[in-house]
């Protein structure tokens, strides 16, 4: 154990953790939105994210920025990223919508028990995973490193790069936008109404199917945006990339209180930071052990997660 290392690098571990956690949080939103409304864990969400990472590389390669290409100027890079967010958002949102249509809606029409939904979710996940695996020959796909990390400023001895600032700020902005959407707008009101009481919402004129489509698309779009940030940060992707990110994001959602948007943010950031501290103390190979031990410990004391469920039905 190396507490000295943790002490010396506390701030830089924090910054790295926050960056990683911001991506977890964005993906976690997809789990939390769907769970909040349908009480369903959409295990296929990790593949929704994975498809976004590939669409990003395809768009960039199509514009002449394949592996090894040199990055254009600042505005060029921002343009490429914006374009990728639109494309990956559309692809991931569309994938999520297809999963809903094919894997969940038919079951809902038949009032299937929740175990069946779970199996269907796992089936959809494996199908997408293997589909992309087959298409890509299970080879990883590279991309140019568009953003060269450059230290912008230093706080308490930790270097903060432009890349880290960009990832954290854009994740926060998207989360804030979604939070306002759910809490302040008509469509968000419909989402909350269905989450709190689907039958009554229908009797008050809310189109339940449309609300469900909306949350799948929103969650998918957030995962798409997260996939672009991931690509910019990591620079390589493969068909199995969704698995660990998906599990971590799901963990983040549960940690913060699944069904709770702000909980997803808190859970994501906390998970990112704690696993980095853990890696600092015990070594990198212990990172995931620390992350999941923390989950178990938190759930022992707060079974509903740190912030509890809020989108969902009220507890009696």
């Amino acid at each position: 154990m190396n507490f000295e290392f943790l002490g010396d690098n506390f701030m830089s571990l924090t910054v790295t953790g926050l960056t990683q956690g911001a991506i977890y949080a964005l993906v976690a939103l997809g789990y939390t939105l769907v769970y909040g409304v349908l009480r369903l864990i959409n295990f296929a969400h990790s593949e929704v994210f994975m498809i976004g990472t590939f669409v990003t590389t395809i768009v960039w390669a199509g514009l002449g920025f394949g592996v090894g290409a040199s990055a254009p100027g600042t505005f060029g890079v921002l343009g490429l990223i914006a374009l990728a967010v639109v494309a990956a958002g559309a692809a991931s949102g569309g994938t999520a919508l297809i999963v809903e249509r094919v894997a969940y809606r038919p079951l809902r029409k038949r009032n299937a028990p929740s175990l069946i939904f779970l199996i269907s979710a796992i089936g959809a996940s494996v199908a997408l995973f293997e589909l992309v695996g087959a298409i890509t020959d299970r080879q990883p796909r590279g991309m140019p490193s568009l953003v060269q990390p450059k230290v912008q400023f230093t706080i308490f001895g930790a270097d903060v790069t432009n890349l880290q600032i960009g990832i954290i700020l854009s994740a926060l902005a998207m989360l804030a936008g979604l939070d306002i959407f759910i809490n302040r707008t008509r469509l968000g009101r419909g989402v909350r109404a269905v989450a709190q009481n689907p039958d009554v919402a229908a009797l008050m004129g809310v189109n339940k199917d449309r609300v469900i489509m909306l949350i799948f698309v929103l969650g998918g779009m957030m995962a798409g945006a997260a996939s672009v940030l991931y690509d910019v940060k990591v620079g390589i992707t493969t068909y199995s990339v969704g698995f660990l990110i998906g599990i971590k994001a799901f963990t983040a959602a549960v940690l913060g209180g699944i069904g709770n948007l702000r909980g997803a943010l808190l859970g994501g950031l906390l998970l990112g930071v704690v696993e980095n501290y853990g890696a600092g103390v015990f070594g990198n190979e212990w990172m995931d052990v620390v992350a999941f031990v923390m989950l178990v410990v938190v759930l022992l004391f707060r079974p509903t997660g740190l912030l509890g469920e809020s989108l969902g039905r009220a507890r009696a």
Partner: peptide
Amino acid sequence: FPEMTALENVQVGADA
């Protein structure tokens, strides 16, 4: 809708 304000409850109806 227990976790919404009284006004929001009525707005859900109006949204129809």
